[in-house]
Design a protein around this nucleic acid. Structure first.
Length: 189
DNA sequence: CGCACGATGCTCT
DNA sequence: GAGCATCGTGCGC
């Protein structure tokens, strides 16, 4: 995956990321999962953090394609995005759910699960951030060549469902959410 | 299973 | 000072 792969059309990037594998090699060990749910946030989109202008918080969305954008939400959670478009565009794809592939025990520890429950490990944007050991220090890192990186998924074909996005008060009618059909690891139908 | 609600702190107005 | 791209718990079915 080259820079141009991330640069080319953020709405299509949200779909092309489905089925790829997000990996984090940390000191604690490796965790990895298939991306099964994404949402696109575009420059002319009122729900996008970059809709108004570049600020300290959203700056990574304006970085070169493949920049990692981590932000805090509701005072206690964090979510991770991968920026798309040309540098300065202010676009990104939110990762909303993973299907765990590797390091499920470590994920469970990080999530402070009392009872191991694979389905709940990465079901939702803040949960997967916790399970993968992603944090604010990774803001502005590049997904190409970091300990947090992407690998091509298996070349199996799958159906993609397109719907409106979750948890928003603005841009609620824009169909920018994508997920793998019939996948039990998505955050919700 | 689904729904309602409170936690919690930072960013932008 | 308002408003969050959320999650866990508790309760009812």
């Amino acid at each position: 995956m080259t820079k141009s792969w991330f640069e080319d059309n953020t709405l299509s990037l949200a779909q092309r990321l489905l089925g790829t594998v997000l990996v984090h090699d940390s000191l604690e060990g490796r965790t990895a999962g298939v991306i099964v749910e994404t949402e696109a946030y575009l420059t002319d989109d009122p729900a996008c953090h970059a809709y108004r202008r570049k600020t300290l918080r959203n700056a990574a969305m304006f970085g070169p394609a493949g920049s990692i954008y981590v932000y805090r939400i509701y005072g206690m959670h964090q979510c991770v995005n991968i920026s798309g478009g040309k540098e300065g565009a202010g676009e990104a794809v939110l990762i909303r759910a993973l299907q765990p592939l590797n390091g499920q025990e470590l994920m469970s520890q990080r999530r402070k699960q009392v009872i191991f429950n694979e389905k709940e490990l990465c079901k939702g944007p803040a949960r997967l951030v916790q399970a993968m050991g992603i944090n604010m220090t990774m803001n502005h890192w590049m997904i190409q060549g970091s300990p947090l990186y992407l690998e091509p998924g298996l070349n199996q074909s799958f159906d993609i469902v397109q719907t409106t996005r979750i948890g928003l008060t603005k841009g609620i009618d824009l169909p920018y959410r994508f997920y793998l059909a019939n996948n039990p690891f998505i955050s919700r139908k």
